[in-house]
Design a protein around this nucleic acid. Structure first.
Lengths: 171, 171
DNA sequence: TACGATACGGAAGCGAGATTCCGCTTGTCA
DNA sequence: TGACAAGCGGAATCTCGCTTCCGTATCGTA
């Protein structure tokens, strides 16, 4: 069920249709509604899950990636990869750039993610591998930008990512 | 009439409603449909106009802005400013990053715009003020990225633009 | 096996918008 | 002034998805 929702929302973003979700799950729409009261609720559950996995990834990065620059690079690469697989997730990251407010319960997860980014950046800053005015507050816009390029279907988003990362280097 | 369409699409993007357009124009929906057979047709007309103005602006930049770096900077600033005013235009630039194909008659205008960008970049490249691997082919992704940040409602898109521009400087 | 509770499927109900259509108004010409 | 054409307004129509609801199927228990 969740599985079907994941697939449908990943492919169509918020345009995903409840009937499509039901079909993929091999059940009727009524059954989908018995688990999630509205389409919005289903979408939220999926996004929450995605946030959790992202937070876990970045946390692991802090523990396991000794190279501060490489950690930042990998963080963006992970973002791009998940955004490519998941249209709904990309859309959420785009919205997040508009300010955390309004995004209800996801607000807390975003703050948690940004707190981790902050550590990533602090480490890189201290090592002198990123510009010294970079902060976690810059991240939402960067994720938003990356998400839209990836989602637009630019086959060569890797190139855009290179330009983005170069902009983060010390001047 | 066109005027009303501009306002409605600028404010709501493709979500603009025909009835809203009619109301702003002070006419009935039937009258709007007498001038534009579909909502899509109206949207296209507005985008064509926007492309024309943008092309004219960049052309003027080539003629009147002697500083090659400043010309590039002004080009992006103009983009951001128009994207901020016009939601539909921002959406088109986001889509363009996915490849010019499919965008029908706008294809030609996009190519014209990119040809001008090419000159802007060549000039800047020769002057050594931008990284030497930058090409006009990088532009769609950059415009797309900028558009999404501006449209997400990030009050401080200027900061993102600074990071973007720094990424274009010689390494 | 009979009975109530629970879960299911999917048709029907609805709301939102785009598009169509027809009766009315205005302006022109004889 | 009267007949006709062109333009107009906006109610009615259509389409598309989300959501609701009810008859049916399944399961656990006496």
């Amino acid at each position: 069920m969740i599985e079907a929702g994941r697939a449908a929302f990943a492919e169509h973003g918020s345009e995903a249709q409840m009937e499509d979700v039901a079909r993929r799950a091999g059940v009727g729409v009524g059954t989908v509604y018995r688990h999630f009261p509205t389409k919005q609720a289903l979408a939220e559950a999926l996004i929450e899950e995605r946030f959790d996995r992202t937070i876990a990834y970045v946390r692991a990065l802090l523990d396991d990636e000794p190279d501060p620059w490489r950690a930042i690079e990998r963080c963006f690469e992970y973002c791009a990869a998940t955004q490519e697989q998941d249209r709904a997730w990309a859309a959420v990251l785009v919205l997040m750039a508009g300010g955390i407010g309004g995004m209800g319960p996801r607000q807390h997860q975003m703050q948690e993610l940004l707190a981790l980014e902050d550590q990533l950046i602090a480490r890189a800053c201290k090592a002198g591998v990123v510009r010294d005015d970079l902060t976690a507050a810059d991240m939402p816009a960067l994720f938003c930008a990356l998400a839209s390029v990836v989602q637009a279907g630019d086959r060569n988003w890797r190139r855009y990512l290179d330009l983005l990362l170069d902009g983060l280097r010390p001047r």
